[in-house]
Amino acid sequence: MALEQLQDSEVFPDTATTEVTCYRPNQACYSQSQSVIQETAVAIEFNGIAYTVMMCSPTNLEEFAIGFAYTNQIITHYHDIHDIEISHSKQGITLHIEVANRCLNHLKNKQRSLAGVTGCGICGAEKLDSVCQLLPTVPFRSQYNINALQPAFRELSQLQQLNHKTGASHAAAYCDEQGKMIAIFEDVGRHIALDKLIGFIVRHHYQGGAIFVTSRASYEMVQKVVCAGIEYLFAISAVTQMAIELAASSQLTLGGFCRSGRAEIYSHPQRIVGEIIS
Rank of each mutant, 00 (worst) to 15 (best):
R102S: 15
V11C: 06
G119K: 03
V11F: 11
K108V: 07
Q73N: 10
A210S: 14
A183M: 05
Q38N: 10
N60A: 13
A2P: 13
D187Y: 07
N145F: 11
E39M: 09
V53Q: 08
Q223H: 04
S278P: 03
I97Q: 11
Y266D: 03
A183R: 01
S9N: 11
F46L: 00
P151R: 14
G48R: 06
F212L: 15
C103T: 01
C29M: 15
N105A: 12
F185D: 01
Y219I: 13
N109M: 08
I265M: 04
Y206C: 04
L246E: 01
K110N: 14
Q91P: 02
P151F: 09
N163A: 10
I230M: 01
S33Q: 15
R154A: 13
T253G: 04
G119R: 00
S260G: 08
A50R: 15
V225W: 09
A193M: 05
P58N: 06
P136A: 06
N26M: 11
F212W: 06
C227T: 10
V226L: 00
S218E: 02
G119Y: 03
P136I: 00
I184V: 12
G48Q: 06
Y23C: 05
Q223C: 05
S9M: 09
M1L: 08
I75H: 10
I230S: 07
K196H: 08
R259K: 15
I277A: 02
N109E: 12
G124E: 09
A168I: 03
I37H: 12
A173Y: 07
G189C: 07
C120S: 15
I81A: 09
A243W: 04
T240E: 08
C29P: 10
R216E: 14
G261T: 04
D8E: 11
L159E: 12
R216M: 14
S35H: 15
L128D: 02
A16G: 08
I198S: 03
I192V: 13
T137V: 10
C258K: 05
E220A: 11
F200E: 05
A41M: 06
L3Y: 09
I37W: 08
V239L: 13
R203H: 05
L246S: 02
F212I: 01
E245A: 13
G189Y: 06
T166W: 04
S9T: 11
L197Y: 07
T71C: 15
D195T: 02
L134D: 12
V117H: 01
C120K: 13
T166N: 00
I97T: 00
A243Y: 03
S87P: 03
L107P: 12
G124I: 10
Q143K: 13
V239N: 00
V20W: 06
D83M: 10
A228E: 01
Y78T: 07
H79Q: 15
R203M: 05
H204R: 07
Y78C: 02
S278R: 07
I122C: 08
Q158S: 14
T71H: 01
E10S: 13
I276A: 03
P25D: 06
F153V: 07
N60W: 03
R203L: 07
N145L: 01
E186D: 02
Y70P: 02
Q251D: 13
E10R: 02
Q270L: 02
I122K: 00
V11L: 14
K165M: 03
A152K: 06
K127I: 09
V225N: 02
V273H: 04
C56A: 15
A243E: 06
G48K: 07
A247D: 08
